[in-house]
């Protein structure tokens, strides 16, 4: 895909806001909140618009507000524009759609989010732990994670 075929941020904004469930965030020109149902549609549009580089999928645990926020950073291979998709999901029902059908890089990125937060991705071909071992219990990066002490560990955290 040549540089001419990559849509600018303004063109992307015009098309993205037309998708139901996608809203632009005030004050920025490349960040959008998406609803769970619109995620795959938004990602497919971005892939077609020249944004082929799925840079990152990660989650932030807003314990006080009671939800996880999934962040998708989608860039292109020509300039430095990064489109950020933010998806809020409730902590009790932590599920989202998998982007494995759109970007192949989503496979390991979603496995890492699952391993650290316990967020399940529907449609992922191989959702299992990637950094911790298979029998590990607990989701380490959640704010309410309690470390299981064992005889091999040192001093505890001071909080």
């Amino acid at each position: 895909m040549t540089n001419n075929e990559v849509k600018t941020k303004a063109q992307v904004a015009a098309a993205m806001t037309k998708i139901a469930g996608v809203a632009a965030i005030e004050g920025t020109d490349c960040e959008y909140t998406v609803e769970a149902s619109a995620l795959i549609q938004a990602a497919e549009y971005l892939l077609g618009a020249g944004y082929e580089f799925l840079a990152d999928i990660t989650a932030v645990d807003y314990l006080a507000a009671g939800h996880f926020r999934l962040l998708y950073q989608i860039a292109n291979y020509h300039n430095g524009d990064i489109i950020t998709l933010k998806l809020d999901i409730p902590r009790e029902a932590a599920e989202a759609d998998s982007l494995c059908g759109v970007y192949a890089a989503a496979n390991w990125l979603e496995r890492e989010v699952y391993d650290m937060f316990g967020i399940k991705f529907a449609g992922h071909p191989d959702l299992r732990r990637i950094l911790m071992w298979d029998g590990y219990e607990g989701w380490p990066l959640r704010k309410d994670f309690v470390q299981q002490p064992n005889k091999y560990q040192g001093r505890r955290r001071l909080d």
Binding site: A55, D56, A104, A105, N107, W108, L109
Partner: peptide
């Protein structure tokens, strides 16, 4: 890449995440 999320109140970050190139490289 590095994602930093701050809650505006404390001296600790709320969340720091690193987009690590070798992690994505070996998925292939």
């Amino acid at each position: 890449g590095c994602l930093v999320a701050s809650d505006g109140k404390g001296v600790n970050p709320l969340r720091v995440h690193f987009r690590r190139p070798s992690f994505d490289n070996i998925a292939i």
